[in-house]
Simulated assay, not measured.
Amino acid sequence: MTPRDDADRNGSRWSDLDRPPLNATALRRGLVRAGGLWREVEVVQRTGSTNSDLVARAADGRAAEGAVLIAEEQSAARGRLDRRWTAPARSGLFFSVLLTPAEVPVARWGWLPLLTGVAVATGLSRAAGVDTALKWPNDLLVTVGGAERKAGGILAERAGPHGVVIGVGINVTLRAAELPVPGAGSLLLADAISTDRDTLLRAVLRSLEEWYGRWRAAGGDPGPSRLQEAYAAGCATLGRTVRAQLPGDRALTGEAVAVDGDGRLVLATEDGVREPVGAGDIVHLRPA
């Protein structure tokens, strides 16, 4: 057995030198500050789901707003509709944050995953030089070889009556042979100028702190906070003909014409009706 084989068998943090571990100390030093949102930044080597872990911690009082939990690898990561999502260890950013927007009406909390999408796209644009588009409601898209690919996703879960846990998964250094499905992508394959995960994570969390603070100061109103405007500007779904697979096995096809004040996608159907969609799977049927 070679030293490399032995390292892989024992789970050495240096078993893939192209994918060094996150520097937890440097992340805390760069993100945790007096008066800031982020109060605790923890990196674990492996867990089932950072979202599940943070929801459980919030439920029994072991986590407060501003807690950030990051995993180098997840064995039971979940997307929307309880879909499973896997990636090699240290190949991406897999993290969850706990937010408790007490001053924002609960009716506006549905904007939090959309806000996170705007923040992630903004942070990646700054740090990775990659144009990241948003597919309503929670997918992060990049362009690989002229084709639109999913490079990440966002999952929001309630954490008791006062909190929301937002989970983010971003494919950073996945190679073509490692992609889980044909429509997947990564920042590496999208020709990012940087795939340093420490740098990317700091940029994303700083952007999330900025957007969350702006939205919270506006009482969660997506207009004055300019969140609605920013989301529409970065949303690749708008202007396309799409099929919405709705609860109850109902499907709706139409042009995505707007994101309304409640964060719903508004479809204009062939019979002239405009119908808002608040939940469902969206399939892009043609380019904008």
Rank of each mutant, 00 (worst) to 15 (best):
M1W: 09
T2F: 03
R4M: 11
D5E: 11
A7W: 12
R9I: 00
S12C: 11
S15R: 11
S15F: 10
L17W: 10
P21K: 04
L22G: 02
N23P: 01
L27E: 09
V32C: 15
A34V: 15
G36W: 02
G36Y: 02
L37V: 13
R39A: 09
V41W: 03
V44E: 12
T50L: 09
D53G: 07
A56P: 12
A58Y: 04
A64G: 12
A64D: 08
V68C: 08
E73Q: 14
E73H: 15
Q74H: 08
A76H: 13
L81K: 07
R83M: 08
W85E: 07
A89Q: 06
S96P: 04
T100A: 15
E103Q: 15
V104N: 05
L115W: 10
G117M: 00
L124A: 02
G129E: 00
G129K: 05
A133G: 13
A151I: 01
A151K: 00
L155W: 07
A156H: 06
G160M: 02
V165F: 04
G167F: 04
N171G: 11
L174Q: 10
A176R: 14
L179I: 12
P182C: 03
D191S: 15
A192P: 08
D196Q: 05
D196E: 14
V204W: 01
L205N: 01
L208Y: 05
E209M: 05
W211A: 10
Y212E: 06
G213S: 07
G220D: 04
G223N: 13
G223I: 14
G223K: 07
P224D: 02
P224H: 06
Y231P: 05
G239L: 06
T241D: 10
R243V: 01
R243M: 10
G254A: 09
E255D: 07
E270M: 08
V273E: 15
R274M: 07
